[in-house]
């Protein structure tokens, strides 16, 4: 790895090449350093499942998995993710790993406009991967950084709670 080259300062608006593994696929794209990961995913890679809401880490609509952990894709630049593994709601949906969560959200009307849902699902997926059967209080705590302006959260908590219990019993929630 070479040291810092001052010429870099004259190239602030020029794009740089980044590579990551997105939803299991190796991709490379050209981004300006100031382009956030969410903008890169949506605009360059056309993965529009991830939503850009507040763009300051408050609403949780932009959550993706970075090297297996849920992070705000609006709170990092794509260049920072160079070399990382990223899983978006698009990939999590296609692979079927959250199919039970999605079905339960649908069944219990845990969404209305759906804007917050990708972030809710990424977060719920992370919670259930860490805590086998979270209490309702733990679910609420985990969702504290995800805003939903339609549902009032109750149905979302219900859905996650039901999936956690069903997974532990080895069946499906519905």
């Amino acid at each position: 790895m070479s040291g810092f080259d001052e010429n870099l300062l004259d190239e602030a608006d020029e794009t740089v090449r980044v590579r990551f593994v997105v939803n299991g696929r190796k991709v490379a794209c050209e981004v300006a350093p100031r382009e956030t990961l969410v903008d890169c995913l949506r605009n360059e890679l056309e993965l529009t499942g991830t939503h850009a809401g507040c763009e300051m880490g408050a609403c949780g609509a932009c959550l993706v998995q970075l090297d297996g952990r849920a992070v705000h894709s609006c709170l990092m630049y794509a260049v920072q993710a160079d070399g990382a593994r990223i899983d978006t709601i698009d990939g999590l949906s296609e692979s079927g790993v959250i199919a039970d969560l999605q079905a339960e959200f649908h069944r219990r009307n845990a969404l209305q406009c759906g804007f917050c849902t990708p972030g809710m699902l990424v977060n719920a997926n992370e919670l259930l991967s860490q805590v086998a059967e979270p209490s309702r209080e733990e679910i609420r705590d985990a969702l504290s950084g995800n805003y939903c302006r339609c549902t009032g959260y109750e149905a979302i908590v219900d859905a996650i709670d039901a999936v956690a219990k069903a997974r532990n019993e080895g069946g499906s929630a519905t």
Binding site: M1, F4, L8, A12, D13, V16, P33, R34
Partner: peptide, 17 residues
Amino acid sequence: MKARAFSYFRAATIEQA
């Protein structure tokens, strides 16, 4: 809003940073 354009340098050591 979006950040003003900047350059990005990934340091490998404290000295480089």
